[in-house]
Amino acid sequence: MKTYNCKPTLTDHEIIEFCKYGYLMLEEVVPDEINERVMAFCDAHPEGNPNDFLKEAWFVDQVLCNAPAAGAVRSLLGRDYGMPLTISNHRVHCPREINGGWHCDDGSQRAPNVDYLQVFYYPQATPLEMGPTEVLPGSHHLSMSSHFMKHLDSIVDARKTAAPAGSIFITVYSIWHRATTATAAGIRNLIKYTYWRTAAPARDWVIDPDFRLENADFATGSPEPRRDWSRVCHDAARMYLWLRGELNNYEWIGGLAWPASATAAHARGFCPGLPADLT
């Protein structure tokens, strides 16, 4: 497996946002001339797994090692992360109608581990009319077999990833997602691939000197009505501490202790539940 290294770009705050919502959208990070080249390559290789992309230096340099995306992947997976082994293209002829379709990809685990990342790249503008992927933010913390999701349709708070050409979004592998109805005509390409962790998890990203664990905000923006507040905070904090390689120091005591109370003022010097020796 080929590996790659670069400087991490995400801060603690951004890592925590990823732990909470399970995805990160980077809009218009791939230049237009590369997007056009990718589109032409897809036309010449219309198969579902155009792995010949991996032999193209321009694709590896500009897409797989795209600086903003690689910096984010490096932050989440650590140094010398493994490069994609295969490339998929969800190439569809629009218009098309989608009903239901919610799923987690095969092999999804409900664990705090981030041993690999599922990444999507839109080489063309993908507005709502072109059927962008829809994700359910925070769903990587929800337990449900894909077989029990097949009747689901409209989910409040789901987000369609409509984005301009050259956008890349990075997800926790187990996030719930689905294809959506496309009303426009034409071919839509959506390139998908996976990066792999090789390094042990560690707090190896951009360190904000003002960051304090006792003040970190693990709650989602709007109260998530399907789960208890303390559980939402605990799941995000557990993933964040796993990424730091410090999960063993954490024991959730429940109640309104840390991390549920992480945004409350702890200037009094007492933060029940805060993992010992961590800042």
Partner: peptide, 29 residues
């Protein structure tokens, strides 16, 4: 199908799916 925030009948919907006349009817998000 209605996925609700709690077991109370008046709690807000979180999701919904509809089959009418043997067909799935698309609903807004």
């Amino acid at each position: 199908y209605i996925q609700a925030a709690s077991t109370a009948l008046e709690s807000p919907v979180l999701g919904m799916s509809l089959y009418a006349n043997g067909r799935r009817i698309p609903l807004p998000s």
